[in-house]
């Protein structure tokens, strides 16, 4: 364990992240990059971008609260070191997505009210399930909820958004840095918690129940977010057709053609991808994946 945890030191993090793949960026993107023009000028696309960005901020605020809250109940110094780097990663994510909200025209003084108004209620419940474990200083459940469930979801959502942002290099670049961060976080969760689950097998039922509950709220969030996406996706296609070029032409994500896929198809592909990842990763740490209830 000591060797594995040494890979997550502050020094390694400094070299890999701020001195590495973030080098030369401002708020996660190249200094001269701006939002795609149509996102800024077409109301429906701008509103949709704001709604998506709000969900990212809500998720990252939860991750920031969880990772910082877990430091005090971490069983060893090396885990505290890693969680300290994760705390700052998540704070950075909050900052860059908040900046994006302002780049999309939300005034600084309206950021918090916009997030409160537009955060999906199911995503808020998803966060509450996790933060209850953190508040109870339950390290094992907290790390599984944070570094496998929440981060696993974020990883796939960010990948999908990045693939969908072929026409918006600024946002795609911002997401690339967060994806690199999330990959580290998921890796820590799998490695550290596997040994802790073996030491505390009595924790399994509680952790499995939490995973099912969080997965349910995650699926409900996906359903809500894709339910009114059809018109917007058609609008984006029409704009691309007028320009005689579609940046999504030939782009696919986990087998779905992003230029032709319907919202229902995209929702199903995203849900299957995330749940598949949960199953694989939970299996590696000795937790039995629980199929969640399907949202109505």
């Amino acid at each position: 364990m000591a060797d594995f945890l040494s890979q997550y030191s502050i020094q390694r993090w400094l070299e890999a992240c701020p001195q590495g793949y973030l080098d030369g960026t401002v708020y996660g993107h190249d200094p001269d990059e701006t939002e795609a023009e149509e996102v800024l000028t077409i109301d429906s696309l701008r509103e949709a971008s704001i709604a998506v960005t709000v969900q990212l901020i809500a998720g990252e605020r939860c991750a920031l609260a969880a990772s910082s809250g877990l430091i005090n109940c971490a069983p060893d110094d090396a885990s505290k070191m890693f969680l300290a780097t994760q705390t700052l990663d998540e704070a950075r994510h909050v900052e860059i997505f908040t900046q994006r909200l302002m780049d999309l025209g939300i005034k600084k003084e309206d950021v918090n009210s916009t997030v409160a108004d537009l955060a999906n209620p199911n995503l808020v419940k998803f966060a509450e399930v996790l933060l209850e474990k953190v508040a109870n200083k339950d390290f094992v459940a907290g790390v599984v909820g944070q570094n496998i469930v929440l981060e696993g979801m974020a990883f796939s959502v960010f990948e999908l958004l990045q693939a969908s942002s072929a026409g918006n290099p600024k946002f795609a670049k911002t997401l690339a840095g967060t994806i690199a961060d999330e990959r580290r976080h998921v890796g820590f969760g799998e490695n550290r918690i596997g040994s802790l689950i073996q030491e505390h097998p009595e924790k399994r039922p509680e952790v499995e129940k939490m995973q099912a509950e969080m997965s349910y709220y995650m699926l409900a969030t996906f359903t809500d977010m894709f339910s009114d996406a059809g018109q917007r996706m058609e609008e984006a296609k029409a704009i691309a057709a007028q320009r005689d070029e579609n940046p999504l032409d030939g782009v696919s994500w986990h087998g779905a053609d992003l230029m032709t896929a319907t919202p229902d198809v995209m929702e199903a592909v995203l849900a299957d991808t995330v749940l598949g990842e949960f199953k694989t990763r939970l299996g590696r740490i000795g937790i039995e994946y629980q199929s969640p209830k399907v949202p109505a």
Binding site: I10, S68, I71, T87, L88
Partner: peptide, 8 residues
């Protein structure tokens, strides 16, 4: 959060 990383 930056202070957390500093202290760590």
């Amino acid at each position: 959060a930056t202070q957390v990383a500093d202290e760590a």
